[in-house]
C-alpha cells in the first residue's frame, strides 16, 4: 500500500497530465461528423508518431552496436509514422478541400 501511495506522490504531475489529457482528448473530438472519421483517425495516427522523440533520445545515448542498430531502426520507423501519417492525412483532406472550392 505504501508503495502505491509513494508512486502517486512521485509521479503526481504526470498523473495529472494524463488524466487531464484524457478528458481533453474526449472533449476535442466529440462532435466530429462521420465524414471526418477517417481523416481524423489518420491525423491522430500521425500525432502518436511523437514517440519518435523517445527514439531520438535513446539513439542519442546509445553506446553499443546493438542499441545503435535498434535505435536507428526505431528512428526510421517513427519517422515513417510521422511523415507517412501526415502526408496521407493531407492527401485525404485535399479531396475535401476541392469540393469546398466548388461550393463557393
Amino acid at each position: 500500500m505504501d508503495e502505491i501511495l509513494k508512486f502517486f506522490l512521485e509521479y503526481r504531475e504526470a498523473i495529472f497530465i494524463i488524466i487531464l489529457s484524457i478528458f481533453l482528448g474526449i472533449e476535442v473530438i466529440s462532435h466530429v461528423p462521420s465524414v471526418l472519421h477517417t481523416p481524423l483517425m489518420s491525423g491522430a495516427n500521425a500525432i502518436h508518431g511523437v514517440v519518435i522523440i523517445g527514439a531520438i533520445i535513446v539513439m542519442g545515448h546509445a553506446d553499443n552496436v546493438l542499441s545503435m542498430i535498434l535505435g536507428f531502426i526505431a528512428v526510421i520507423l517513427g519517422t515513417l509514422n510521422v511523415v507517412g501519417g501526415f502526408v496521407v492525412t493531407d492527401r485525404m483532406l485535399e479531396m475535401f478541400k476541392k469540393k469546398k472550392k466548388k461550393q463557393l
Binding site: S21, I22, L24, G25, I26, A44, H48, V50
Partner: peptide, 9 residues
C-alpha cells in the same frame, strides 16, 4: 501527444 491520441482514438 500520446494520451491525447489514446483517449480521442
Amino acid at each position: 501527444g500520446g494520451i491525447l491520441v489514446g483517449s480521442s482514438g
